[in-house]
Nucleic acid binder design. Structure first.
Length: 764
DNA sequence: CGGTGCGTTATTTTT
DNA sequence: TAACGCACCG
């Protein structure tokens, strides 16, 4: 059996699978069969090394990766596999904390806050502390708090290390924020990890329990771990040191979110006895695509050198298309897509369109809709972030955890019941005086003579409603509770009364939400599958509790939902074109990939261009994007792009320049022009609302581009414009035989000019 | 209290 | 473009 598991693997893969003891670092390039190695290794541990399955812990970042690994391990190792713990970092920590968090003074019914909840709390804390929203943007304050938590820096540490005014102010907000969470018995995503580490530190006997349990630990995407996750893994693995981490420093694209690339670069320092295996054979892409990826990434300094190779032939060249605008870009993509469906008998599911920012999806979507091409968007507007869904979840959370003040604030006046800001503020201050959760403050306020009778009645009504809903917890199934909330609160009636398309959409979403709860119930009523009665932790499959609708159903549902993302709901098997950011595309592959927006200031983003570390991360993102493609890759850039309202002209991305010319082919010259002829995109909108007429194009394929004006100006030149005054040439680029210059004016932004017409002269 | 309208601002986001 | 915060008014 053990030997079977080594069949069909290449030598380094085999080495990684068969290395069952001690620390192991697997450097797995893109498409090198990483998941295959991980799953085979789990099966091998069970079958060959006789490791009990419940001693194996495999950690991933996404539920999707966890689910895939789980099912593939099941295929290889059979029913034994369900005892293996395959879990995301966050759900592992959530489960550990549900068991033992009481040791730290939280209750086991704690709520998990998502990002929008966090923003709400931070904004409120800033307001209470009179911190100016101009100087301190809530998202950046939140980011500072988040990265502190990722570094395991608590409020006290943070305050002590706050040197300047800014940091000291943030320290105050952090303190207030954390106090809000603690009194609300709530944890944010970062807390899940940080508090778990704290639990291990303060309760060695708890750590000991897990250390003894997990004799073999595996971590996927190790390059994306942050310090807290690193520490968690280190603590868990300290006894046996049977730690296998898999990652690729070239695919580290979450540094901005706290991922610490040193975790992988310095693994051998942490574990000097570590074995290192490099997987460099790529089974995914053509040689041309790999060459391009290798050339781009070679421009990064800080990396473990490796070079991907493939046994596949070189394949098609990478098609580069210079679109006029983002609309033309979308049109080109749709054209090529249709063409390949016929010419190469492709299906929609073979294609992915990748971009840097979600905002770019719009133009592409519009064209796909108008052509009737089926597509799916990953990311962007999320199901669980829709208002009505968040409202329902907030009700459920308050029912489950009445101390959850964040959720309570969300729903106390939804639907409208006449509880306004001032009433709420009164309740809040009453609660704060006594250090009690908000609900207690609401109860006091309802009886307080300080408040108007109308406000008191409104509060009393609300309390009565919640009083009817609260007892349903443990008595009814989740879907029954949701229905009760919709009815009792009048939420549904209000929406129905609205009679708008928007309201109808919300009702549809609520129906969908009920379906989600029902699915959850049917999954959980299949009865105890395999849970031994001695410890509820022994449930494989990421579930908190097993069994028919019991008292903890709601808790389990809420936990599952808080840790779920849209990606987990997306059905990637349907025959549709996939649109998503390059970040979301990590770990996926497609026969044909389009990368849109290959322009400076878009990709790489303008703010990353001058920060070497940020630029390297952008480049890794580019590497990830390129290596998603199996057979064909398209790089598309637009001469001008309307984004956030105004249009800007950007030069082609430096990443395109980093690809050797012989790997590229001009898609326009190759076929697009031949099929369509030139179009007459004549109007170019430039920043500052200046509209400029460019001559209609009368060019035919093969005509030499005009060289006129080419030598006149160059980047860096100082020029004077008749209207805008002195400026500096940022770039000069050619388009359809005409030369354009981007000129920066002090204080006036960057404007685009047609050199043959614009009133500009050189200044010496 | 709650609705309207204006001005500001703008990555990426595994959980 | 579009979402959100804030100020103002009924």
């Amino acid at each position: 059996m053990g030997a079977d598991l080594l069949c069909g693997l290449n030598p380094p893969q085999r080495e990684a699978v068969a290395c069952t003891n001690g620390p192991l670092l697997i450097l797995a390039g893109a498409g090198s069969g990483k998941t295959r190695v991980l799953t085979h290794r789990v099966a091998y541990l069970i079958a060959h090394a006789e490791v009990p399955p419940f001693g194996i812990l495999a950690m991933t970042f996404t539920n999707k990766a966890a689910a895939e690994m789980k099912s593939r391990v099941a295929t290889l190792a059979g029913s034994e596999a369900r005892w293996v713990w395959v879990s995301t970092f966050h759900s592992l920590c959530a489960r550990i904390l549900r068991e033992d968090i009481e040791a730290l003074g939280y209750k086991r019914s704690f709520t998990i806050l998502d990002e929008s909840d966090q923003t709400t709390v931070v904004k409120r804390c800033m307001k209470e502390l009179n911190v100016s929203g101009d100087m301190f943007k809530p998202p950046s304050v939140l980011a500072a708090i988040g990265s502190a938590k990722n570094e395991l820096t608590d409020v006290d540490d943070f305050r002590e290390n706050a040197r300047d005014v800014r940091r000291r102010t943030i320290a105050q907000v952090y303190e207030a924020y954390q106090r809000t969470l603690v009194t609300g018995n709530a944890l944010d995503f970062d807390d899940l990890i940080m508090v778990a580490v704290r639990l291990f530190r303060e309760r060695p006997e708890v750590l000991e329990k897990y250390r003894n349990r997990f004799t073999h630990i595996m971590v996927d995407e190790y390059q994306d771990t942050n310090h807290a996750q690193y520490m968690l893994v280190k603590m868990l693995a300290a006894r046996t040191r049977n730690l296998c981490v898999v990652g690729d420093d070239d695919q580290s694209i979450y540094e901005w979110r706290g991922a610490d690339i040193r975790n992988i670069l310095e693994f051998e320092r942490d574990y000097p006895e570590a074995r290192v295996v490099k997987l460099e054979q790529n089974y995914r892409s053509t040689q041309t695509i790999l060459d391009a990826a290798n050339h781009v990434i070679a421009n990064n300094r800080d990396r473990k050198s490796k070079s991907l190779w493939t046994a596949r032939e070189s394949g098609a060249k990478i098609a580069l298309y210079n679109a006029d605008t983002e609309k033309d870009e979308a049109r080109f993509i749709a054209d090529e897509l249709d063409r390949l469906i016929v010419a190469e008998k492709r299906c929609y599911g073979d294609f992915a369109v990748l971009y840097r920012m979600n905002a770019q999806s719009r133009a592409i979507e519009e064209v796909l809709v108008s052509r009737g091409i089926p597509y799916r968007i990953v990311g962007g507007l999320k199901f669980y972030e829709r208002r009505e869904i968040k409202d329902m979840l907030a009700y459920l959370r308050v029912i489950e955890n009445p101390e959850d003040s964040v959720s309570l604030e969300r729903i106390i006046n939804v639907p409208r019941r006449g509880i306004g800001d001032s009433t709420l503020a009164a309740a809040r201050s009453l609660a704060q005086e006594k250090g009690l959760p908000l609900l207690a403050g609401v109860q006091m306020a309802a009886e307080s003579m300080e408040l108007a009778a109308r406000a008191r009645n409104a509060l009393a009504d609300f309390l009565a409603t919640m009083g009817r809903l609260q007892p349903l917890r443990g008595e009814r199934t989740v879907s029954q509770i949701v229905r009760a909330v919709l009815d009792e609160t009048g939420y549904l009636t209000d929406l129905e009364r609205e009679q708008t398309i928007e309201a109808e959409g919300r009702i549809e979403n609520l129906k969908e939400f009920i379906t989600v709860t029902q699915e959850f119930e049917s999954r959980h009523s299949e009865g105890p599958l395999d849970a031994p009665s001695d410890t509820p932790l022994d449930v494989p499959g990421g579930r908190l509790q097993v069994g028919a609708s019991g008292p903890n159903d709601l808790a389990a549902f809420l936990e599952e939902v808080s840790l779920l993302t849209d990606l987990d709901r997306a059905d990637l098997s349907a025959d549709q074109v996939t649109l998503m950011t390059m970040h979301s595309a990590k770990g996926l592959e497609f026969p044909v990939v389009f990368i849109a927006g290959m322009e400076e200031n878009v990709f790489p983003l303008a703010r990353s261009a001058y920060d070497p570390a940020a630029l390297e991360e952008e480049r890794r993102l580019c590497y990830v994007g390129i290596t998603r493609a199996k057979d064909r890759l398209y790089l598309v850039h637009a001469f001008t792009r309307a984004i956030f309202g105004s249009s800007t002209a950007n030069p082609v991305s430096r990443f395109v320049e980093e690809i050797p010319g012989h790997l590229l082919v001009d898609a326009f010259a190759e076929r697009y022009a031949a099929r369509h002829g030139w179009r007459d995109e004549t109007r170019v909108t430039v920043p500052g609302q200046v509209k400029m007429e460019a001559p209609a194009r009368v060019k035919t394929v093969g005509t030499e581009p005009s060289k006129q004006g080419a030598s006149e100006f160059a980047a860096g030149d100082k020029v004077r414009h008749a209207k805008f005054g002195e400026g500096t040439v940022v770039s000069v680029n050619q388009r359809a035989g005409e030369w354009f210059a981007s000129i920066a004016f002090p204080g006036g932004g960057i404007k685009q000019f047609l050199l043959s017409l614009a009133p500009i002269e050189k200044v010496h």
